[in-house]
Write a protein that binds this DNA or RNA. Sequence first.
DNA 1: AACTCGCACAACCGCGTTTTT
DNA 2: TAAAAACGCGGTTGTGCGAGT
Length: 245
Amino acid sequence: MGRPPCCDKSNVRRGLWTAEEDKKIVAYVSTHGAGNWASVPKKAGLKRCGKSCRLRWTNYLRPDLKHDDFTPGEEQTIISLHAKIGSRWSIIAHQLPGRTDNDVKNYWNTKLKKKLIQRGSTLVDHAVELLPQPARLCSFAFLPQPHAGNNRRSPSDFSWTDLTPQGGLPTFPFAEAPPLRGIFQDEGGEICGGTPAILGEDDGDDHRGASSPSDINSFVESLLSRDDEMMWAFPEFLNDPFVCP
DNA sequence: AACTCGCACAACCGCGTTTTT
DNA sequence: TAAAAACGCGGTTGTGCGAGT
């Protein structure tokens, strides 16, 4: 038995929102604040699913949203972060004030992808795929070796504690593992922030605008400090099949 | 003028995660 | 602690509109 629908679909309006509906949402949120979306349709007098109300608010009606074109700086930030973390649109959007994950996702899918292809970047769809390769080669060096009676090969066969050198609690940040450090930091230990090297280009121009290099670097640094999120950011680390070194 | 096509973006869906009871 | 509800995310689909024929 699956999850029950969030609302009675036969009794809700769908499709594009009217100005009248928008007004109701804005009026409701200005009075009651954003949240408790399940009850919003009833309280605001809307024949919409609560989830749909939330989406309309977060993606379009929020007063802090920008509705103009993406700037070159924002564009560069998206490219840079996508190369590092893939299609984690909400994370990327957090680096772009006034933009939503939907904005960023649409912009990537409709404009940036094509632009990068035209520019000849080979990393458009493969940035994240490429990242784990060198990492995988050496990151599994600290995994327990399969042996007689313990020939576990599948990621699901390993617990998180298996990923620690001593098999104890995961006390080290996953990103401290040399391979990840190698990806995100150069030999001097400096964080590589969306560099032309990652983007497959180096025309000498600084394309960054909205987010400064230090912004991007601190963002990447914060990711590095959160080992569990890194694991989910790069699930390819645990993909089957993997070859124990 | 009518039609088709492609693009941009809004909206939906399913599912995982988090919070509440 | 478990179940239910709410929330949030990413992928996909639908819709409107302008350009081209």
